[in-house]
Amino acid sequence: MSILIDAWTIAWKDLSNELKTKQTIGMMVIFSSLVILVFSFAFDPTNNMVKAVIPGLVWLITIFSGILGLNRSFLSEHENDCLTGLRSAPIDPSSIYLGKVLANFIVVTVVQVISIPVLFILFDYRFLGAILWFMLIVIVGTFGFIIVGTFLAALAANAKNSEMLLPVLLLPLLSPLMIAAVQGTRIVLENQDISDAISWLQLMAAYDLLFLAACFFLFEFIMEGS
């Protein structure tokens, strides 16, 4: 229980800081809008192709902007060596991980709430799918992305070139999740048989649980050391 309280304390520290400065969220929103803009040059939005690329774009903007936030989340702890401060505090190291997952998840979700509608508007896309299923898929997929992403951000933060290292480590590991998320999103947006989307959702949920457990136990090893 105290793990969760500590995790929330750490998450709240990051979030309240973000509320004050709004720097990371602002950057992420602007960046994802720019990605949408670039893609609208690449795929002509007036064309019929739009329908085919929308499900992929939802996830592309999430991942691209999410990586920006993930990079920050552990680098900021290296200023003044705060991470050592956290490690010398009487808390379970895993609560640092949970706290960061929580904070990152909330930040990325907030960015999505803004950027996905922007995507639909700029691509002039009429949303006809089942909104609740769509939201569920987005949440489960994003959660998996954050679970693995936060873990690897902590790992990459040990390197000097962590900003470059993180995507290289993260994207191959995300590939099964992204396949499932994009396919699930496509099925929901095109109003196809929901039961197909449910099987993708199950795959994502299994991925989330498996990696949450693995990362939770392995995080201690990342925190150890000089």
Binding site: L173, S175, P176, F221
Partner: peptide
Amino acid sequence: ENIARLSAVFGIIGCINVPIVFMAIRWW
């Protein structure tokens, strides 16, 4: 030691991932 630990962690996560990738792609 540091690198051994970090790379081992990544190796394990990668290992877990490979069968899931296979499953996901076949399904897809």
